[in-house]
Design a protein around this nucleic acid. Sequence first.
RNA 1: GGCGCGUUCGUCUAGCGGUUAGGACACCGCCCUCUCAAGGCGGAGAUCACGGGUUCGAAUCCCGUACGCGCUACCA
Length: 484
Amino acid sequence: MSPRVRFAPSPTGALHIGGARTAIYNWAFARATEGTFVLRIDDTDAERSTPENTAQILRSMRWLGIDWDEGPEVGGPHEPYFQTQRAGRYAAALERMKASGTAYPCFCSAAELEAKREIARAGEGPTGYDRTCRGIDPSVAAARIAAGEPHVWRLAVPEDRGDIVVDDIVRGETVFPASAMDDFVLVRSDGTPTYNFATVVDDADMEITHVIRGDDHLSNTPRQILVFEALGHAVPRFAHLSMIWGADGKKLSKRHGATSVEAFREEGYLPEAILNYVALLGWSLDGETTIISRETLAREFSLDRISKNPAIFDFEKLEWMNGVYIRDLSPAGLAEKMIPWLVEAGLTTTADYEARPAWYESLVPLIAERAKRLTDIAPALAFLFTDGVTLDPASADKALGSDAARDSLAAAADALAGLGSWDHDTIESTLRELAVTLGVKPKVLFQAVRVAVTGSVVSPPLFESLALLGKEASVARMRAALHA
RNA sequence: GGCGCGUUCGUCUAGCGGUUAGGACACCGCCCUCUCAAGGCGGAGAUCACGGGUUCGAAUCCCGUACGCGCUACCA
């Protein structure tokens, strides 16, 4: 049987980086094994789940290029894929468990339970439910339920159950003492299922073979195994992933910067880079390769190369990797990606891009190897789109501060103004010859021109910039700088 | 408190009984060069958390300790 895996986010927020990694691993595992990747929305937390969050999660996954074989918007043989729409399945499962005696009603109030927990916690030993209601005679229980008494349904952990062994693919064999398993709640007093019940019912229904999820669920796993067994269903394999931390070793949060996939997109990251970087946070292809395409990931991913230890999210390395992917883009590809950012910055319009795409593509070489994020592009190209340019004071001071620099700039303006043809090579040879004639270092002359034309001592390559800006504008800026 | 998990350069990792402990980011130096980048070359950086074992030999296997994290809910 080919593997069936699932990613089951809770739509209580955006898809964050940890969830994205879980999704990526599930997806990659399914692709590499020719299995099936199911997307299921675990929205049983009615308080915090919203349709907007669900929509955003789907959007983020699509943006990353993670497609699912079954789930929202694509359907599948196990519809519906929203837990809130699967109430019938949970009710049916509970009925089966009632019939087999593996579930029983509990009438203890929240206050009573809390009091007991307090006492237990103060002393030694487990704090789990003390099974007060497990001994209630079924007919008595039925009468109390009929009378409308509030109750939950609990799992009856088998008395003779030995220690529960989870043969985790990532962590190896981990043993949980049966004594530590309490009769936890399956169905709440309002009739809705708890997480540990709903996921198991769904994973069983959907014939999930491998559960790949966050480390925080490892301790829940023995409970879930008990439910699988009570349901008489085969237990899937498990693979628990370590957490992703911020630089301070704490859970990754907004304090550390962007954490949602959406936020990374807004900060100018490419989906390929996020996918690649995040995949490497806890998995490696061979220990050497760092740039890994989506296709390679989908072909080569394997669970046995997942590492056990938690990873700290390194924004700097992600940024470097994003630069790698930006440089890897074709001129047309990067032009298309940068346009929204130029429009956003108020420098141009999509109409202008559509009118002369080739011109925009010719800008790409100026910034491709200088940009780490898409957000770096508009500031670097702004001087090409504005009427004039405001000189950065520090730059002006540095490159135009001396009389020699100003004199050579004036000479350069004159020399360039007289040019018949306006292209990179002509501009370069003109300025180089002028430097010789003037007896100044080329670098000094170039920097003076650079500041006059781009406003800053740091800019894209000079001759290309002048060629793209045009003769009139270039010369005008150089003369304007002399009077500044 | 109980139960579980984790610990290799600053960071991500390779390693699965014998290696000068390898790679990547970041850092430093040199080269290239019209600035900034990108690129090339080189460097520094890890007593493999600590302590005991097992073994001819341990980062690798076993036990313990420390620290960190997770679960211990009618959250997921």
